[in-house]
């Protein structure tokens, strides 16, 4: 296959504004991933290309980017799912809504600030019965299972038009993380998290657009989890 890889590039130290660089790659296998193509560009064509990736197997969440207009992990995006036929173009951009540091690398700090704001850790100061384990039934564990799959890649938050419009919105990923603890029977700080999320920049900025659900590489039903948090605030 022949693939034209269009990469949105920007080096703030050199460029006045971002531009698309095109790289023509020959002998691409249908099962190659977009990450393989980016590696090829960086290793053999232009070493100045900047991108993040760590595990390269869909676990670490480092290489989320906008591919053909949809947020996904470059390491999970197969060429055969993006191009039909023997040749075609794949467009790669950094995620929207976060400041570009260079090329495909964005500043993740605002994302992690929102993450921290919902207290993404178990809060429980009482000593469990017997002083050992905090027991939980399989049903209680199942209640928050979806949220545990999140890898904090930011694909959901940076696909959200509400987040693009206003970066003070806590964003889908932080709400998913809050959901994971709010519905955990062992946790005792649900009220505090719901208080944060009932603020103007909390869950109410979600307009049920579903981009987050489409973008999630872990197939978490993000919009549904946000709706469950809204419902929980509504019931109080």
């Amino acid at each position: 296959m022949e693939v034209t890889l269009k990469v949105r590039r920007f080096n703030p130290e050199q460029d006045e504004k971002p531009y698309f660089a095109e790289y023509t790659l020959k002998d691409v296998e249908p099962v190659d991933r977009v990450l393989d193509l980016l590696h090829h560009v960086k290793w053999y064509i232009d070493g100045t290309l900047a991108l993040r990736r760590s595990c390269a197997h869909g676990i670490c969440g480092s290489d989320a980017m906008r591919i053909n207009g949809v947020n996904m992990l470059a390491c999970k995006a197969l060429v055969q799912n993006l191009i039909k036929g023997e040749r075609g173009t794949i467009q790669v951009e950094p995620m929207y809504g976060l400041k570009v540091i260079k090329d495909l690398v964005v500043d993740m700090e605002p994302f992690f600030d929102h993450y921290r704001s919902v207290m993404p850790f178990l809060v429980n100061d009482t000593i469990p019965e017997g002083g050992r384990e905090r027991l939980q039934t399989p049903e209680q564990r199942e209640r928050f299972d979806e949220g545990t799959k999140c890898i904090l890649c930011a694909a959901c938050t940076t696909s959200c038009p509400s987040y693009w419009a206003n970066g003070t919105y806590v964003g889908p990923a932080a709400i998913v993380q809050a959901h994971r603890f709010i519905f955990d029977s062992r946790d005792e700080a649900g009220a505090d998290r719901l208080a944060v999320l009932s603020e103007e920049n909390g869950v109410w900025r979600c307009r049920t657009i579903f981009n987050c659900t489409t973008a999630c590489p872990r197939e978490i039903p993000v919009t549904q989890l946000i709706a469950e948090v809204k419902g929980e605030i509504g019931r109080r």
Binding site: D192, A195, S198, E200, G202, W204, G234
Partner: peptide, 11 residues
């Protein structure tokens, strides 16, 4: 800052 009360207006 974490407020102890929910934001009733937005809800």
């Amino acid at each position: 800052s974490v407020s102890q009360r929910d934001n009733k207006f937005e809800t």
